[in-house]
Design a protein around this nucleic acid. Structure first.
Lengths: 333, 333
DNA sequence: TCCGTTTTTGCAACCGGTTGCAAAAAGCTA
DNA sequence: TAGCTTTTTGCAACCGGTTGCAAAAACGGA
């Protein structure tokens, strides 16, 4: 049904190569030829078949966008940024939902069948093996929101989660709490492990302060709420560092449910600073993760890799900072 | 770099057709041949190039997933459902972000260049012209969350927004309010217009009740909050039907801000019933929109259209229902 | 074992483009 | 206008597969 190059060539009375060249920038075509071809193309409503051309050029401009975070509102922001950023550069995101997938093999095969030019793994909970599997399959890959490392095996763009753990601990210590808690996300996520590590490390400098640790089943509202309800039955801490913002909001809900108030009875600090955390009826004190910068940098890195597939792997780490809002008491002046 | 069919054929000592056939189901190949080819393919790590084959078969199994709602958390649920549903059926979503795009032409061209087998327009705010543009370009299209119509021009799957307007009005009337308000989403969205129409229609049956109308700039928290703050400066109504859930939550935030409480001072009913509305610290009374059913039905319709592109257009309308929660007073028994 | 059927296989053309190469055209200089 | 250089054009092969068709192989029955 769609118009082909051949038809345009016939109508314009020129060779197929000529048509191809007018639609390939950087190719040598005279002005006369170009206008003749463009006229015919316009009349026929022709536009070149990107997939056919990918056969010879070896470029599809398709980028696999792989994630498993379809229940965390911050990822809507992430998808928005990725899709727009990729579009602006003429790239097309092929979205892959890895929820319920523990084996990279299928997705690697699928994305190779579609000859994607590269893959962005956008997730803080997928194990590093996923990104590695793409690399091993010879597909350029960037792991966004992946584990920071001083000797990265694949390109990683994100934050230093260990450091955010320390920051959270310091923020709680600044409030003079004598009993604080780490309420992390899922145990097997590297982000959880790193935040935990940093938090514990920093707390080791305060041996007089009591430290409690626990983990929610997921980065989700429900998991946070459930875990907090359990904790509140026992002897709760004064200040909590929660796995992330959505988890924090679940925790806040549990606190209100028990008739306690925040920050008077219990202080909370989250992580991410998603749009919702700014909402006036949530007003969550949290650690800002610069997702816009992370996404844009990931895209730039991806674009660079398209020209230089064997680029030496690097880790791009962006600084975070505490955003003071209403769920921790004000700092003493 | 990737292994081609030709290499497999050489290694197995058979013709290229033979290899092609073993990877095409329904083709005639002997057991002996199949195992010979599969062995060679396994040894070489071959998997067929989906795009190359699409050239001759005319099928890419790519589906354009077009939306402009990247700031409404319910769409994260929508994307989750779409990506998983499509994947299960062997289809791949090519995500297109139409934020800031008022002209369908570009996206139509782009999706045709990638020879998508079909397009799902998933949006309640994109004008119907977008879906029509795809239809006119000869691409099978389903408009999910589009305007219900008794004489649809393209396939539409969604709800009857006029009816939800009536339902909301009835829910407010059941509370005995004497002054109610419609606080809609953006004026130019068909969903806003229809909900408004139904609401006003139903309210016409209660001429003694005062009716106020206004519109927020977008289906967003901020827009709802802003508009409500403005309204509260004047003489507020007793009960509000808000454009959707995220807008409602913005409205709730404004109410609390002004020192009022919900549902004692003001009652709110939203629309969508997104996950967040169930959260205990939001607990929004709302109209449930069956998004799971809508998405699955959209996918089924899409799949049907792949076999029958000229299928007669139909509108699939799913019923909604009020979910009683904490932002409207309890119904008198 | 022979012959007619049915199944399996390979050939070659094709899908819609791109591109190296050489011939043709255009441009430039004298 | 001849002769040389540069640019433009078309030919034909190729990208990685699929498929109609006819030849070859396997099957079945007598």
């Amino acid at each position: 049904m769609p118009v082909t190059l051949k038809e345009v060539a016939e109508r314009a009375g020129v060779s197929r190569s000529a048509v191809s060249r007018t639609f390939t920038d950087g190719a040598s075509v005279s002005e006369k030829m170009r206008s003749k071809v463009e006229k015919a193309a316009r009349e026929l409503g022709y536009s070149p078949n990107a997939l056919a051309s990918s056969l010879t050029t070896g470029r599809t401009k398709l980028i696999g966008l792989v994630s498993n975070n379809f229940h965390n509102p911050i990822f809507l922001e992430v998808f928005d940024l990725f899709t727009r950023g990729l579009q602006e550069r003429g790239l097309r995101p092929l979205l892959v939902n890895l929820t319920e997938e523990r084996d990279p093999e299928n997705s690697v095969r699928m994305l190779r069948q579609y000859s994607v030019d590269g893959v962005v793994v956008a997730s803080s909970t997928l194990p590093p093996e996923f990104a590695l599997a793409f690399r091993d399959a010879g597909v350029p890959v960037v792991h966004s929101f992946g584990r920071a490392s001083s000797s990265p095996k694949v390109h990683v763009v994100g934050i230093d989660n260990v450091e955010t753990g320390r920051m959270a601990a310091r923020a709680l210590m600044a409030r003079g709490y004598k009993h604080v808690a780490f309420l992390g996300g899922p145990r097997d996520a590297t982000s959880t492990q790193d935040r935990h590590k940093g938090f514990v490390e920093e707390m080791a400098l305060h041996p007089d302060v009591r430290l409690t640790e626990s983990f929610a089943k997921a980065y989700s509202h429900e998991a946070g709420r459930k875990e907090m309800l359990r904790l509140l039955d026992d002897q709760p801490a004064e200040g909590y560092f929660c796995g992330d913002d959505v988890l924090s909001i679940g925790v806040l809900s549990a606190i209100k449910d028990k008739g306690l108030s925040c920050p008077d009875d219990i202080g909370i600090i989250g992580l991410n600073d998603m749009e919702m955390s700014r909402w006036e009826n949530i007003d969550l004190t949290t650690i800002h993760q610069p997702i816009k910068q992370i996404v844009n940098s990931s895209i730039e890195l991806m674009v660079a890799m398209l020209d230089e597939p064997d680029r030496y792997p690097e880790a791009r780490i962006f600084p975070c900072s505490v955003v003071e809002r209403g769920t921790l008491p004000e700092l003493p002046a």
